[in-house]
Computed example of a mutant assay.
Amino acid sequence: MAAAAAPDHLFNLRNNLYLGSYQAAINNSDLPILSSEDAVERDCLVYRSYIALGSYQLVINEIDSSAATPLQAVKLLAQYLSNPHDKESIIASLKEWLADPAIGNNATLRLIAGIIFMHEEDYSEALKHTNAGGTMELHALNVQIFIKMHRSDYAEKQLRVMQQIDEDHTLTQLENAWLNLAVGGSKIQEAYLIFQDFSEKYPMTGLILNGKAVCCMHMGNFDEAETLLLEALNKDAKDPETLANLVVCSLHLGKSSSRFLSQLKLTHPEHILVKRASSAEDSFERAVQSVA
């Protein structure tokens, strides 16, 4: 008989991170005796949850230079996100580590590299480090990168790999939903059902609410979308995706979106919607000047 698989002590912790229950991930991270490898992964998941909550400095302060490679990679992500003026030297350090044969192939380091290069919109560089896969998170990030590149055909191939490994995995389901949203049309309803399933199985998070709301907007149900987004805003008043989606939703409902856009400008000045709005304002100003 085949030996039973060892229990996955980190399952709930991972799931909380994937679904956006960051505080729950942190609060429930005091787990029974873990192997040293699992303990490092647990700490990575907890620190990534802190990063998702914007507590960059805590992560930078707590991970010292003697920590394991995966933790050093997570610290680098916190430094990258907290210090927009020092991105060049942080990316230089990252490239140095990736070129080091001793640590360059570490799955967490490759994942963080993919995330950072995705932020930089350097998708080919991101894929250099993520494309080989090796973990469900790396496969999931590949799907995200291909969606960003408008290559839903490649994203679909990656999703099929994930489905072959574990069709019911939270990340497989999530990437299926995001890909359905990217493809659009009749796939929107399928995406909605995945988010609906999550909302019945797990505590409601901003990520699930935003997913459902975007599906609703695609289907023209802007009133329902607004209700979901306001619920998400109650959970996190500074979440950039919630604010951006509320701007779009309000415009479709004929309501003022200026308050949500102002909040987004204050908390996330680099957000693509803020940049587009500023660019539109500049164009308008130039047009006014030219006829004045």
Score class of each variant (00 low, 15 high):
residue 10 L to D: 06
residue 100 D to I: 03
residue 262 S to R: 08
residue 18 Y to P: 00
residue 96 E to G: 05
residue 26 I to N: 12
residue 112 I to V: 15
residue 37 E to T: 14
residue 222 F to N: 04
residue 99 A to R: 11
residue 208 I to N: 04
residue 93 S to G: 08
residue 188 I to W: 02
residue 191 A to R: 03
residue 23 Q to T: 13
residue 166 D to C: 09
residue 227 T to Y: 07
residue 182 A to E: 11
residue 216 C to D: 09
residue 277 A to Q: 11
residue 226 E to Q: 14
residue 186 S to Q: 14
residue 75 K to I: 05
residue 276 R to M: 12
residue 291 V to W: 04
residue 172 T to M: 05
residue 266 L to A: 14
residue 81 L to P: 05
residue 30 D to E: 12
residue 66 S to D: 13
residue 190 E to Q: 13
residue 112 I to K: 03
residue 209 L to E: 07
residue 234 N to E: 06
residue 274 V to W: 05
residue 118 M to L: 11
residue 168 D to S: 08
residue 278 S to Q: 15
residue 163 Q to M: 07
residue 85 H to R: 11
residue 74 V to M: 09
residue 217 M to N: 11
residue 174 L to F: 09
residue 66 S to C: 02
residue 174 L to Q: 14
residue 213 A to K: 01
residue 88 E to I: 01
residue 93 S to A: 05
residue 130 T to Y: 00
residue 232 A to G: 10
residue 91 I to F: 03
residue 178 W to M: 13
residue 106 N to D: 15
residue 261 L to M: 15
residue 176 N to P: 00
residue 176 N to D: 12
residue 102 A to C: 00
residue 106 N to Y: 08
residue 193 L to C: 02
residue 249 C to P: 12
residue 26 I to F: 09
residue 244 A to R: 01
residue 194 I to Q: 05
residue 132 A to W: 01
residue 211 G to E: 02
residue 77 L to S: 11
residue 76 L to K: 12
residue 110 R to N: 04
residue 276 R to I: 08
residue 126 A to K: 01
residue 19 L to I: 05
residue 83 N to M: 07
residue 31 L to A: 04
residue 18 Y to E: 04
residue 143 V to I: 11
residue 122 D to C: 10
residue 33 I to E: 10
residue 16 N to G: 10
residue 44 C to R: 05
residue 239 D to S: 14
residue 16 N to E: 10
residue 249 C to D: 09
residue 263 Q to D: 14
residue 187 K to V: 06
residue 12 N to I: 04
residue 140 A to W: 03
residue 163 Q to S: 04
residue 6 A to D: 13
residue 9 H to A: 08
residue 284 F to S: 13
residue 205 T to C: 00
residue 105 N to E: 09
residue 72 Q to W: 03
residue 270 E to A: 13
residue 191 A to F: 05
residue 261 L to A: 03
residue 232 A to F: 00
residue 236 D to T: 10
residue 152 S to A: 14
residue 95 K to S: 06
residue 97 W to A: 09
residue 145 I to H: 03
residue 267 T to P: 04
residue 106 N to E: 11
residue 48 R to M: 15
residue 217 M to W: 02
residue 286 R to W: 05
residue 211 G to I: 02
residue 217 M to D: 08
residue 213 A to I: 06
residue 286 R to A: 12
residue 33 I to W: 09
residue 276 R to A: 14
residue 291 V to P: 04
